[in-house]
Amino acid sequence: MGSRARVVFWSAAIVLLALLPPVVAALKEPFYLDLMRRVMIFAIAAISLNLILGYGGLVSFGHAAYLGIGGYAVGILAFYGVYSGWLQWPLAMGASALVALAIGAVSIRTSGIYFIMITLAFTQMLYFLGVSLEMFGGDDGMRIKTRSQFSGLVDLSDPVAFYYVVLVLMLASMYLVHRLVNSRFGMVLRAAKSNEARSRAIGFSPYLYRLAAFVIAGALCGLAGALLANHTAYITPDFMHWTRSGEIMFMVILGGIATGAGPLLGAAVLLVVESLLAGWTEHWQAILGPLLILSVIFFRRGLAGVLPGARDG
């Protein structure tokens, strides 16, 4: 298997994604462009979760928090008339990193089920904060009239240009995480997941390394949030709803935990299945729920585990 399958897989994936806009334009089916852009934005969120969950073993059930913070950073700046993406996006990432630092500093001291419950609870707190922000639409959220502007470099209101921006950022995120998890830093993360007692016995306290990974993941997911706000041109507390956290987590598992292509595959399959089921019945969640349970019980390797070449980034 090894490197040849890997080259084939990644070349095919990149070519397919890059060719999608002209194909969609020829078929006059803009819906698929929209769907795929959404898939790739969620893939970035899943990539960031995979860093801490897949490689670090931190079962965070609160990752949607950073989607929300990234989204609100864009929305609130736009609300005050600041449209520059050069300002919005770094701020979205910085604010997400800061919140991740605060949440991580408290929660990473615990482990197991505590960590799951705490990350979920803090995200719920941010959700309620969003609901109570009447000024920014409260429960209903608010529309973002103008997409992020990049001083004429690229125009996000052009769906195709926006698509390519998302594609490039997603590939960059994958590459970033690939480098991180194979560096010395990444080895500490993986080792602490594999056998924490052994890591401590040879001199590593995993806390600071895990916290650093948690902050990096938060910042990356904040970027996904900024993209999502631009994608929907709308921001609501639902960005941070706990079911969102569950969906992102499921993308990581479905795609294949701790794999390079897993987050993208998981995001693609989950969102496509969701949109197919939703087109068929309004009660699609009654079908998705059992599907989810079955895939947890019977499909533990994940999609990347069965696709040659998709395991490594």
């Binding site: 991180l180 560096s183 830093f185 080895m187």
Partner: peptide, 15 residues
């Protein structure tokens, strides 16, 4: 690696 100082080195492949 544990004996070689801190491991906040993010880029170069350890392998």
């Amino acid at each position: 690696q544990a004996h070689a100082g801190h491991s906040f080195r993010f880029w170069r492949p350890a392998r």
